[in-house]
């Protein structure tokens, strides 16, 4: 816990500790730690001098905040209108089938987290997804297969 507190202290050193900073504070913590743990939220409450219930109330209100760790690859399937019309649901099902987890889940080996997102603004390239920071548009079942199936090791390159 102490190590955690020190770490959080460093993360939040650029903030002044006023209640109004709650959302940027939570964003920064999540950026650095990957998610909002109960300890981190309690720390934020203390740091900003507001009740922990407030912190959790705000954190749970906004879509961006998550309360459990996520996989190495964050896969977000865009579910905006354009993507929906162009088959976002099929894309979600295909990916889910390939990586073996459902929407909202994280794989046991912490490799993947699969999420839906309202719109990433690449509507002209629908249907699209993001894997971490990379956007992939105009998806087809074949492209999805390419993105998510591990490539077989090419023996020739090993020689």
């Amino acid at each position: 816990m102490l190590v955690m507190k020190e770490k959080l202290g460093i993360i939040l050193s650029s903030f002044s500790g006023e209640g109004r900073e709650l959302i940027p504070v939570l964003q920064k913590v999540q950026d650095e730690m990957g998610y909002l743990s109960p300890e981190a939220m309690l720390y934020a409450a203390e740091f900003l001098k507001i009740p922990p219930s407030n912190v959790f109330g705000v954190a749970s209100f906004y879509e961006q905040f998550r309360f459990s760790p996520v996989g190495k690859k964050m896969v977000m399937v865009c579910q905006g209108t354009a993507c929906h019309v162009k088959g976002a649901e099929k894309v979600m099902n295909e990916i889910s089938r390939h990586i073996g987890i459902k929407k909202g889940q994280t794989s046991e080996d912490m490799e993947y987290t699969l999420k839906g997102v309202t719109c990433i603004g690449c509507c002209a390239l629908a249907p699209c997804i993001t894997i971490n920071d990379d956007v992939h548009g105009r998806l087809t079942p074949k492209l999805i297969e390419k993105l998510f199936i591990k490539k077989p090791v090419n023996k020739k390159t090993n020689e």
Binding site: Q79, G80, T81, A82, C83, H84, T118, C119, G121, C122, C123
Partner: peptide, 8 residues
């Protein structure tokens, strides 16, 4: 805060 899905 352009939250409308399908607009950019």
């Amino acid at each position: 805060d352009e939250g409308d899905p399908g607009s950019f």
